[in-house]
């Protein structure tokens, strides 16, 4: 922690609606803040660009899982049917690829879905049941109809006074500092 003297986690500003939040996100990004996030009860179209976020890497995680599912499914069927215990089933070849397609397909989908769900949890730091934001009574509105921006105290540009003034200028309706 860079700011050991400062016990605040960051400064939280509330905005009136998705439009104001969008504007604040653009301003925060433009001002050069890096450790900030915008909170809303639902995803807002265009917010990633406004915040200057890079595209999600989840697709690569899913691709990796899909390949494991595909190769694993093939390997399972070829090994069990042709190597471990070959059984002649009505004269069909031991490695009967057309018949292996359904199981391979299902396992590819299954593993990809695991990748998509657990990869998303991993990227989102979930489960994480304690979050300094939950200290704020006001922040409870975020899952109902509240729109918030936080700038964390670890951001190099963070300065309690200046950051507060910045939020006021951005049109925040309420500003508070969040304790750790």
């Amino acid at each position: 922690m860079s700011n050991t003297t400062d016990k605040t986690f960051g400064i939280l500003a509330e905005f009136k609606n998705p439009g104001h939040l969008m504007k604040a996100a653009k301003m925060t990004h433009k001002a050069g803040y890096k450790k900030f996030d915008c909170y809303s009860p639902f995803p807002i179209h265009g917010m990633d660009d406004a915040m200057g976020l890079k595209p999600s890497k989840l697709g690569y995680i899913v691709l990796g899982h899909a390949l494991i599912g595909f190769l694993g499914g093939m390997a399972l069927q070829i090994w069990t049917s042709a190597i471990a215990y070959p059984i002649n089933i009505s004269g069909k070849p031991f490695i009967n690829l057309p018949a292996f397609i359904p199981v391979t397909f299902e396992l590819t989908i299954l593993l990809s879905a695991f990748g998509a769900v657990f990869g998303m949890f991993f990227l989102n730091n979930m489960p994480k049941h304690h979050n300094p934001l939950f200290n704020s009574e006001r922040f409870k509105k975020v899952t109902d109809d509240g729109f918030f921006v936080i700038i964390e105290s670890e951001d190099p540009l963070y300065n309690p006074e200046k950051t507060k003034a910045f939020f006021e200028q951005a049109g925040a309706v309420h500003i508070e500092s969040i304790a750790h």
Binding site: P43, I44, L58, H129
Partner: peptide, 17 residues
């Protein structure tokens, strides 16, 4: 709820997922 906060950094991966 796994500590969901509704931050856009979460929504981004969530929507992709």
């Amino acid at each position: 709820a796994l500590g969901w906060t509704g931050g856009n950094r979460q929504w981004q991966h969530y929507e992709k997922s």
